[in-house]
């Protein structure tokens, strides 16, 4: 017998004695989940306001921009104040074009890259799959956001989202992942909720433990 079969045999033997279901049986429905989880307003305006509030509580920056030229201006201002020299991005309609407009040395993750070069970038600019109002979360995947390292290795992560990407809550976000990818899921799906942080020293909050110290979300 293989080790797998041995373990399965032990599991089946163990389960031959039934346990009592004290809190009911069967998996809860999404409606049941929604009934207990934190409330989210029904209108888009409420959800946008909630996302903005959550993002600011998390010490992320969230900005609504009305068009591409305003976005370019915002990015250029950041480039100048933070003195960026190198930017990392990925093949995508929004992130790539806006990165190009910065006129800096640009690493495009999908072209294959050297990890040392990525580590030297001052900023990673990516797109995303969704913004989640309930928790102020940005949902990215290895397909929508240029792989695994782009949103994590550079010290500043900038997300360019579209307004219609806003979803109300976590159940909607998981439903969206299933709808978008079916059975061919990306190898990484990440729910990013604020910039990287730690409280491991005396429970005092420090941003930028390993991942980005800054998270900026632009919403078109």
């Amino acid at each position: 017998m293989s080790e797998r079969e041995i373990i399965f045999a032990r599991i089946r033997e163990g389960l031959s004695i039934k346990a009592h279901a004290h809190y009911g049986d069967g998996l809860p429905t999404t409606e049941e989940h929604r009934g207990v989880m934190p409330p989210v307003g029904a209108s888009i305006e409420e959800q946008l306001a909630l996302f903005a509030k959550n993002a600011s509580d998390l010490k992320a920056t969230f900005k609504l921009v009305k068009d591409a030229s305003e976005l370019t201006a915002e990015l250029r201002a950041l480039r100048d104040t933070e003195k960026w020299q190198r930017v990392a991005t990925h093949k995508s309609p929004l992130a790539q074009t806006h990165s190009a407009a910065l006129g800096l040395a640009t690493l495009v993750a999908d072209d294959g890259y050297d990890k040392h070069d990525m580590e030297q970038c001052d900023v990673g600019i990516s797109e995303c799959d969704a913004l989640i109002a309930q928790t102020g979360t940005v949902l990215v995947t290895s397909r929508s956001a240029g792989g695994r390292a782009l949103s994590c290795l550079p010290p500043h992560h900038i997300v360019i989202a579209r307004r219609e990407q806003l979803v109300a809550d976590l159940p909607s976000a998981f439903a969206l992942v299933k709808r978008t990818y079916g059975v061919s899921y990306p190898s990484m799906i990440s729910f990013i909720t604020g910039p990287s942080r730690t409280g491991d020293i005396e429970r005092i909050l420090v941003l930028g433990a390993h991942g980005p110290k800054k998270l900026t979300i632009f919403c078109l």
Partner: peptide, 21 residues
Amino acid sequence: QALTCYNTMYGGPRQLGEADG
């Protein structure tokens, strides 16, 4: 916290067409 900073699901090694992993 409401959610920790990163909650990440991994479904395999780097897949075809992905930048890294």
